[in-house]
Simulated assay, not measured.
Amino acid sequence: MFAIPLRQPSSMSKSQKQSSSMDDHDKPFQYEITDHGYGKDAVKVLHVSRKGPVHTIQEYEVGTHLKLYSKKDYYQGNNSDIVATDSQKNTVYLLAKKHGVESPEKFAILLAQHFLNKYSHVEEAHVHVEAYPWQRVCQDETKANANGLAPVGNQGSCNFSSIDNRSLHNHAFIFTPTAQHYCDVVARRTDPKQTVITGIKGLRVLKTTQSSFVNFVNDEFRSLPDQYDRIFSTVVDCSWEYSSTDNLDFLRAWQTVKNIILRNFAGDPQVGISSPSVQHTLYLSERQVLDVLPQVSVISMTMPNKHYFNFDTKPFQKIAPGDNNEVFIPVDKPHGTIYAQLARKNINSHL
């Protein structure tokens, strides 16, 4: 669940070194704790912002992990430096009450900096936030006839990207799990710049044509024929790291990345776009994110192939004559997995 940062604290103060040496007297000389930490996971919080009749909600699942300079809780059973995980849980609620909630990234940064500022013996704070995908109920979805049925032709017609607030409900919401927005923030006392990683998880997409896979290695192990037109389906997992977060609209940036992925997968609504391979589609998406968002230093994306195999109707010509290009068998396992990380040159990544 938690991303593992690559950078390590570069130095310790005199008091921190003394604290570390105090731990050593009960440490077995042949062993050493090389990584440690603790925290509270899956803290669920709902924040409601009430501005007149229009309400806005944010529901998060939050994890907070702390790394202390001292390891005396491990070596000696001395708990005097431990900020209880119950206190960490309460901190989530109290900071949400005091400061409000705008985006997963800003709330995670607020929490991480709080732990460093409040407790001088905390070396590192790592906060993970997953946002629940609530959207306002659209006006079209509340329309119904006398029988309680939606008008013909309105099913699924609601445009959730509408900027006309009159068409969106003031205080009613619908759960729309198209994809999950999450982030990781790591703040270290020895590093003035926190690590901010944002991601998209579980974005499942499918298109029925304009995907091919041909001219791959042809050897004695190959059984898959060239595929000039196939169903292309995948579940996109994507994460990226910001080199700068000053004045950044995190929610807009997340939506921008999502839109770029969908555009490179689907193309124009009437024309589409050709996908010669999953690899090429993935690369085009990552490259465009770096082109459009200069604050992003590196992006990583995984696209597993969710296969839909054509059902063979040849033995059943008396029942279903002709070729079959309408009925497919969904096969999730086994599946191919394609991934790549694209970075600006001379940038160190924590992904």
Rank of each mutant, 00 (worst) to 15 (best):
I197H: 04
G52P: 10
I338V: 07
I329E: 03
R50N: 08
K89E: 11
Y75K: 03
H25F: 14
D219S: 09
A3Q: 09
F213V: 10
L95Q: 00
D323G: 11
Q113R: 13
Y69W: 03
F328V: 02
L284Q: 13
L342Q: 05
G148H: 10
N305Y: 07
A144D: 03
H65I: 09
N348P: 14
K17C: 09
F216I: 01
N346A: 15
T208I: 13
L248R: 02
Y69H: 12
T56H: 10
Q76T: 12
F221T: 08
A131I: 06
R188F: 03
A150T: 00
E141L: 01
K14W: 09
S233V: 05
K345L: 11
C138E: 04
A340C: 05
N165T: 15
Q317G: 04
D81H: 13
T337H: 06
N147A: 12
E59S: 03
H55W: 10
A112L: 07
L342Y: 07
E130Y: 11
F250V: 00
V196H: 01
I197P: 00
V83Y: 13
N78R: 06
A179F: 04
I109C: 09
P133M: 07
V205R: 09
S15T: 10
E32P: 00
V127N: 02
N154D: 00
T195Y: 09
R50F: 09
T142F: 10
E241T: 05
D237G: 10
Q210M: 05
Y228L: 13
S277H: 12
E32K: 07
E326K: 08
S70H: 02
V127Q: 04
A96N: 05
S167V: 02
D246M: 05
K67Y: 01
S300N: 15
K97G: 03
S21E: 05
